[in-house]
Design a protein around this nucleic acid. Structure first.
Lengths: 336, 336
DNA sequence: AAGGTTATCCGAAACGTTTCGGAAAACGGC
DNA sequence: GCCGTTTTCCGAAACGTTTCGGATAACCTT
């Protein structure tokens, strides 16, 4: 390994000068700087990050805390797209991304702070975490800069980015209402996810606009899973056979809903219309192609990384970013 | 930040003893060790990785080099599933995973070695790289341990894991042949991917078993993309209208093939049967559901991480791992 | 009681970098 | 030729850890 010392020797200057030359300080002669740079280049020098961050206390790495992201959830590639966005922006700004996935079991052992310190990350992006997760409380109180995905929490070192869930749901449900549907079932996630409450809020707002009272019994949790949604829809349609449309809080659950509806011998969209949320890739290929609400997942990741780095580098910046959503109309809704 | 020094002071011993106590050396009294451990715990100590790796020259991190993985390719979540497997195994063995995605443009600037040194990774897993990529040559010659995904390259510090591509293709094509198909088009990737040549080999072997001569003109490259495959199939079917089945080297391309076939007003599988490769999630939902060859993507990642760590820690281990594939029969093939 | 062994501890150097405080040399003004 | 300023450089300390080579004291062995 070639060090700054080797360069210093080769150039006949001190290590201080090499360091300052390479780091662009202005108290070094341009000729000297060029000479040093040439030598560094010739020797194939690359700085030792460990030594550097030992001094600077910065590692130039961002942690990505994926709670509960297992192979099972890989079907909805939301996490991956967000990750791509993060990775791209981090790369552009010369930060590294290190993954650490935790399981509820692991979390008992190591505190959030310990985890971050040990990995030596400057800041963290957290996604897929439940609102009642113990980590969440630690986050706000800890000093480590952090941005959350889809969790509305702000603090001096905490920000978040999310989609316009209310608006998206509002538009999706309005679309159903405009198509003549009046009894619209909701397949919700679970209460410990902010998107669940936001999207339900959008549902209610749309109902209100059409003067339709909200009926609690039309809402059922599907726990964000395909199987969970399937079962929820079976129960929902058994209790309320006159439901003509289903608003599913996530596409994965919409897929489960599709199966359930068909399992009951009903047609989609002929007898029951279905709309989802997320616009995951499968929705364009399944049959019928799913009408859904697009979220800009890549952008979420991209902006999350941007926000975190802004936080890290002490820039004044909004700690809250809500991205637009868009209704994607396909074939799973028919007029009534 | 609480350091080893603080612990030493609190415990009334030297930093040496603290270090040795915490690292399980046996030349420290058990009582002393326990006392030190308690103090460390109480103070919330966590070791400074930078300092540690400055000395040890190990970072306990694995690099993941994703060449050309963009948001576009997120549709086939293969990369993500592999990543999940890698991340899990790395986590189990107490390694971190850092991502660095490169673009051909970036590669010009930094050499493979520089990149790895700078990021300070102990070893690298590389995937999605083309056979003619300049990095590849560097890899074998470099000293940095490395495992490749789907690229058969071995060396003292280099290993790879891949799927049984020949066998998978053989079974898929045999299945078509057994269904009575005799003129089977191939939508290949491009020549700079090993899977392309392996899967084509399997195709040829199956043909041979049935005594059918290989016809070069039945093969067309689709460049691993949906759009590329679509165009390839248009051309293929225009030239050879009596093709009754298509073997697509990847599911993404099979999806494109589906569109092309339908675009020509033909039925799948009624008039043209289609089989894919990979078993990506969409294949179970698209219509018709795609018959394809499953590769165990998660396992690939898992084993790749295992192999790399074995390499790093100097264990004697096979530098070559080929995972089984399995034919998944769905609805896109009919008998003839 | 001398010599040898074992158990337990420690001082100091080393890893590669940044940075603080200064110092030498060159220059300008008068 | 003196003084102040600017330019360009450097020595040494510091970051937190590991590790080498001992050192001390207690315990055996004969």
């Amino acid at each position: 390994m070639v060090t700054i010392k080797d360069i210093a020797k080769a150039a006949g200057v001190s290590v201080t000068t090499v360091s300052r030359a390479l780091n662009g300080y202005d108290d070094v002669n341009e000729d000297t700087r060029q000479k040093i740079k040439d030598i560094a280049q010739g020797l194939g020098y690359s700085p030792n990050m460990a030594a550097r961050s030992l001094i600077s206390k910065k590692t130039k790495t961002l942690g990505l805390l994926l709670s509960n992201v297992t192979r099972a959830s890989s079907k909805d590639n939301i996490a991956f797209e967000i990750l791509c966005g993060m990775n791209d922006r981090a790369g552009e700004l010369d930060y590294d991304l290190v993954l650490f996935s935790t399981t509820p079991q692991k979390q008992k052992i190591k505190s959030y702070k310990t985890l971050c310190q040990e990995r030596g990350v400057d800041g963290v992006i957290i996604m897929g975490i439940r609102l009642d997760d113990a980590y969440l409380k630690e986050v706000v109180s800890s000093q480590i800069p952090c941005v959350l995905i889809d969790i509305p929490l702000e603090g001096p070192n905490v920000g978040y980015v999310t989609s316009d869930n209310v608006g998206g749901a509002y538009r999706a449900v309005s679309y159903l209402l405009e198509a003549g549907h009046r009894k619209i079932g909701v397949v919700n996630g679970h209460s410990q996810a902010d998107v669940s409450v936001q999207r339900l809020k959008g549902y209610k707002q749309a109902l209100e606009r059409f003067g339709i009272p909200f009926d609690e019994s039309l809402v059922m949790d599907g726990s964000f899973s395909e199987a969970g949604a399937k079962e929820a829809v079976y129960r929902l349609l058994a209790q309320q056979p006159d439901i003509t449309a289903l608003f599913c809080i996530s596409d994965l659950m919409a897929l489960g809903a599709l199966q359930a509806v068909r399992g009951l011998g009903l047609q989609v969209p002929g007898q029951v219309s279905v709309v989802g949320f997320d616009n995951i890739d499968v929705t364009a290929y399944c049959s019928p192609a799913l009408t859904t609400v697009n979220q800009n997942k890549y952008e979420m990741g991209y902006q999350a990384a941007q926000m975190l780095i802004d936080l890290l580098e002490g820039r004044k910046v909004s700690h809250r970013l809500v991205l637009d959503t868009e209704l994607i109309i396909r074939e799973s809704v028919s007029a009534r």
